[in-house]
Design a protein around this nucleic acid. Structure first.
Lengths: 301, 301
DNA sequence: GTGAAAGCGCTAACAA
DNA sequence: TTGTTAGCGCTTTCAC
């Protein structure tokens, strides 16, 4: 009834558990006669052997686990939740294809314990609040990939859409001076301020949405102007209350097909998830210290 | 530089590692003098001790891990992806509040290995394809909570919105005989057929959406009729191409605020995630065999 | 080529 | 009340 272990296989095959381990892991440094190998493989199959990864990671010191951490705060509004969950989902698929399992964790405050407890091999963190995070980050020696966050320390690997180029492109679509900007609320202050700076707009022409209602009342005031919206979920909501042709939407979640066809869409060549996963694999598989590009900005198409 | 272990604390405190374990786990069966207890706690604090959960679960035979499994196929279309990811996210938060960590896993074919490998304490599975799943399900002795799936075996615990009552209520809103039905494509055949049966409609009045385009062309043909849409994401998409007042939308993802106010919305009293989590905790904390309600149907409000 | 054995960090009998 | 000890299932040197 109990799950078979390495030892069980070893006993059945009259070899040592070491040999079984070699066979099952295709140990490079060991040569195993084909006969033993097949015998072991056959018995493992018969018994329905499945390795216990907790035991494995205890000794190998690798958990095979990647963590996706999202602050609960970032998950309150639909547009942010969808954006992050979409990315998380894609990330999980990519990680899974590379042999990693994914721990999804929604942080309360600074509950980063999980990184150490579960010995995560890598961590993806969305929209990191700098103060909260910076203080404790040096406790870990994990590759940390920050998404949608600016934190000027080479310790962190940052992946973001190039808001700069995206805004330039959106401006091009709109070709008009008198613009407005709608964006989501970031926890990461640096990024938020950078976007504001890049827009070159004054405060009254910028709306940072925390509640749905804010969007509608802001748009009402700008009825005859053109504007840029960051985040296509916000874009899609806006379009129910605003002429689509007056809008350029920066699709940071990779879901431009949600938009009305008359709205101009800025899309990106690569998804955040794919870039993040790629970066992580580099970090994990190359010698340390990896050449640490401070930021990876994903270009619009 | 290395992470401190129980032993390190024990050494510093001149007690055995067992004592440390007792203190740190507030072991009920052991009485520890306040003095030792404080000493241990203080040192643990100083050293920044964090338990290694892999080691713990190796011996305690509980991983503290709950799995959320979603077939990759179920994740292809936005409306299903959003629905499942929303539920997964809520589930994760609830699980986390109950002390469980969450493994998010998108299945390819029958890659259920992860359940055994990681010794998951519980598994949530969305939209289970019966053939694929039934064959291998008896390999596990985990509480299995199936969401949006019908599988008549008391081995599985099923949580679903009450499509029956929801459809009745939607019909009430529409008060008209000549209805149509739009729904998503389920992998679980039994559920799909049950919904079709409950609708009482003939094939030409039912549209099962796999691609966005199908939705629009179907609606075009039904322009002057009233209809029921299951899944509010589909509902929201429909509204861009169809008079909202002719629609009753069954909001199985708990996001009714996405809908146009003139569309009738059927909402549910409790979220799927909350019901599923509750069920899981019952199963985990009560004596075996738990009273096995075959199905939990969540009622519309 | 193969296996004995040490140990990863922790828990839980069982002694003392 | 506390400590000793025997593993949990696996990997990996290092002798044979």
């Amino acid at each position: 009834m109990k799950k078979p272990t390495l030892k069980d296989i070893a006993a059945r095959a009259s070899v040592s558990s070491a040999t079984v381990s070699y066979v099952l892991n295709n140990a490079a440094k060991q040569s195993i006669p084909a006969e033993t190998r097949e015998k072991v493989l056959k018995i493992a199959e018969e018994l329905g052997y499945v390795p216990n990864l907790a035991a494995r990671s205890l000794v190998s010191r690798k958990s095979g686990l990647a963590g996706i951490l999202i602050s609960r705060e970032s998950t309150r509004s639909v547009w942010r939740r969808h954006k992050f969950l979409e990315a998380a989902n894609e990330l999980e698929q990519l990680l899974s294809d590379s042999g990693y399992h994914t721990l999804l964790f929604s942080l309360r405050d600074d509950s980063y314990q999980i990184i150490a407890e579960r010995k995560l091999d890598a961590v993806f963190l969305f929209d990191a609040a700098e103060e909260e995070f910076y203080a404790i980050a040096n406790q870990f020696d994990v590759p940390l990939v920050l998404i949608d966050s600016m934190l000027d320390d080479p310790l962190f690997h940052k992946i973001l859409p190039s808001y700069e180029e995206a805004i330039r492109q959106a401006e091009g679509f709109l070709n008009q001076e008198d613009r407005f900007l709608v964006m989501e609320q970031f926890r990461n202050k640096a990024l938020k301020e950078e976007i504001i700076r890049l827009s070159g707009l004054k405060e009254t022409d910028i709306c940072i949405i925390e509640e749905e209602e804010q969007l509608y009342s802001f748009l009402l005031k700008k009825r005859h102007r053109k504007g840029i919206i960051i985040n296509e979920y916000l874009g899609a909501m806006a379009i129910n209350h605003f002429p689509p042709e007056q809008l350029a939407v920066i699709c940071t979640a990779g879901n431009e097909n949600l938009l009305h066809p008359e709205a101009a869409a800025v899309t990106f060549a690569e998804s955040i998830a794919s870039a993040a996963c790629k970066r992580m694999l580099e970090l994990l598989n190359s010698e340390w210290p990896a050449e640490s590009k401070k930021y990876v900005w994903i270009k619009p198409t």
